[in-house]
């Protein structure tokens, strides 16, 4: 499946898709988007890259084992839920920073949770597609 067109297109597409996915993630709390969609878009980007350049190159590109992304994402989500416990509030109580930040807007633990979702979804899609690529390449 090594096609020049796909390879060239992917080189351009991947950064765009990654940026788009982060854009979806950040604005997801206020406009359509969010961790699920963002993660799927990013996962699709890496999958395309793996299709064009092979899994080993794509893995280098990703730098981190996708299975670790799943774990890291779950960890982020759980920590965001646990934070409120330290303040004596019930589990998963949303905590928000008072002043809105530029571009991103208000930040708080629910957004951190969404980041966890985002990481898990990337990890899941990439784990599935990369291992399938590898298995089919045998």
């Amino acid at each position: 499946m090594h096609s020049l067109i796909l390879a060239t297109a992917t080189r351009l597409l991947l950064p765009l898709m990654l940026m788009f996915s982060i854009f979806l993630l950040i604005r997801g709390h206020n406009e359509p988007g969010g961790g699920f969609v963002g993660g799927l878009v990013a996962g699709a980007g890496f999958t395309l890259y793996a299709a064009a350049y092979g899994v080993s190159q794509a893995s280098n590109m990703l730098r981190i084992d996708p299975k670790r992304l799943i774990g890291a994402g779950l960890l982020v989500a759980v920590s965001s839920a646990l934070l409120s416990l330290f303040l004596g509030l019930p589990l998963m109580t949303g905590l928000w920073y008072k002043e809105p930040l530029p571009v991103i807007g208000k930040v708080g633990t629910p957004m951190l949770f969404d980041v966890g979702v985002y990481l898990v979804v990337i990890g899941v899609t990439v784990t599935i597609t990369f291992s399938l690529f590898e298995a089919e390449g045998e």
Binding site: F36, L40, V121, V124, T125, I128, L132
Partner: peptide, 16 residues
């Protein structure tokens, strides 16, 4: 929304 994403996971699992 979650059903779609979970559905994807299940579908991939079935295929594999």
């Amino acid at each position: 929304l979650t059903a779609i994403v979970i559905g994807f996971g299940v579908q991939a699992f079935t295929i594999v």
